[in-house]
């Protein structure tokens, strides 16, 4: 039998994905059209819903950059979730202590420092001892979960609260925004946009970005081209952690105003998908992050239709599979 052409194979894959989603919806007993409409449009139902979507959009972009950065160096930073949590917790505590705009700034910076520190063991082990970053970052995630849960239920818990949370920052101690119609666009979101664009420029146009990409694509060729592969690897994971921690700090001072058990709804794990869905282009992080925030927001609403929220995860996962297939297909084509 002749092998099928790449476009036919992609078509079959896309069709399979759609069928899987339909089967999942039908077995859940819901009306597929209604569920899909709700998933996609819930964010635009009310200003509050849209504001909630933006609250997700911001960390998805920043964490998407964190994952993308490491990915470009050939590293899979699963530890973004833990770095985000540690950054968010530290950022909250610092902002609570300092207060005002200084607290906002210091909180975000403290988040960045702690995020980098959380990635440091994994970066060092990977670069200089050859231990795989996936294993070490998963273990660091576990430590971050347990440590943050312990601290927020103990030393840094608001004694007046009935559940594990810190005190809440006042509005004057948080980052504001620009009102656009009925909603307020937080400065953090604007910062995140700028950050993605700046990252795209850095990666594609600078010598450092070029060297990072060489290390990810062919480290041996990199060493012959005068690149210190170990140092670049080390720096890339550290930077990825710093960005993730910054994202956590920013989330605390811009949107949440406090740190609590459940501060992250799995942003760090979703960010892995955001970065892969973005494709080869860093700017792709923006639409990809938006798709994630849209569907995750919608997944809350579909629960009212008695459909498990996992449906959004299912759709996103299949999208990631589909996009990976498109990218992989292109690479295979160039070689064939």
């Amino acid at each position: 039998m002749r092998p099928l052409s790449p476009s036919v194979r992609l078509g079959i894959l896309a069709l399979t994905c759609i069928v899987i989603v339909l089967i999942a919806l039908i077995t859940s007993g819901a009306n597929p059209a209604q569920v899909l409409t709700t998933l996609l449009t819930d964010s635009f139902r009310s200003p509050t819903a849209f504001a909630d979507t933006l609250k997700r959009f911001c960390p998805y972009m920043i964490l998407g950059v964190a994952v993308f950065w490491a990915l470009r160096a050939g590293l899979f930073n699963i530890g973004v979730e833990g770095q985000f949590l540690m950054g968010g917790m530290t950022g909250t505590v610092v902002a609570l202590q300092v207060g005002g705009i200084g607290g906002v700034l210091l909180g975000a910076v403290a988040g960045m420092v702690v995020g980098a520190a959380w990635a440091l063991p994994a970066a060092w082990i990977r670069a200089y001892r050859g231990g795989h970053e996936v294993i070490s970052t998963i273990m660091l995630n576990m430590i971050a979960f347990q440590l943050s849960n312990h601290l927020v239920a103990g030393p840094i818990m608001d004694p007046d609260a009935g559940f594990p949370t810190t005190r809440t920052l006042g509005p004057q101690d948080m980052l504001g925004g620009v009102p656009v119609g009925p909603i307020t666009v937080n400065w953090a979101l604007i910062l995140a946009f700028g950050f993605v664009v700046a990252f795209g420029w850095w990666l594609r146009k600078t010598v450092a970005g070029y060297e990072l990409s060489v290390v990810g694509a062919n480290p041996t060729a990199g060493s012959f081209a005068g690149i210190d592969v170990k140092r670049t690897t080390f720096a890339a994971l550290l930077a990825s952690g710093a960005i993730a921690g910054f994202g956590g700090g920013l989330q605390a001072v811009a949107f949440e105003g406090r740190f609590y058990m459940g501060f992250s709804t799995g942003y760090g794990f979703d960010a892995l998908g955001v970065a892969i869905l973005a494709g080869g282009n860093p700017i792709g992080i923006i639409p990809s992050a938006f798709a994630y925030s849209l569907l995750q927001q919608g997944s809350l609403a579909v629960q009212t239709l008695h459909v498990p929220p996992g449906i959004a995860t299912l759709i996103l996962s299949l999208l990631v599979v589909l996009f990976s297939a498109i990218r992989y297909g292109k690479v295979g084509h160039a070689n064939g």
């Binding site: 010598v207 070029y210 060297e211 060489v214 694509a217 062919n218 041996t220 060729a221 012959f224 081209a225 005068g226 690479v331 160039a334 070689n335």
Partner: peptide, 20 residues
């Protein structure tokens, strides 16, 4: 393995080693 990044363009490979 040592001299090229296969998936990259000739232009991007022309820089390799000279980037600094």
């Amino acid at each position: 393995a040592e001299a090229l990044v296969e998936d990259w363009s000739l232009a991007d490979n022309a820089v390799l080693g000279f980037q600094r």
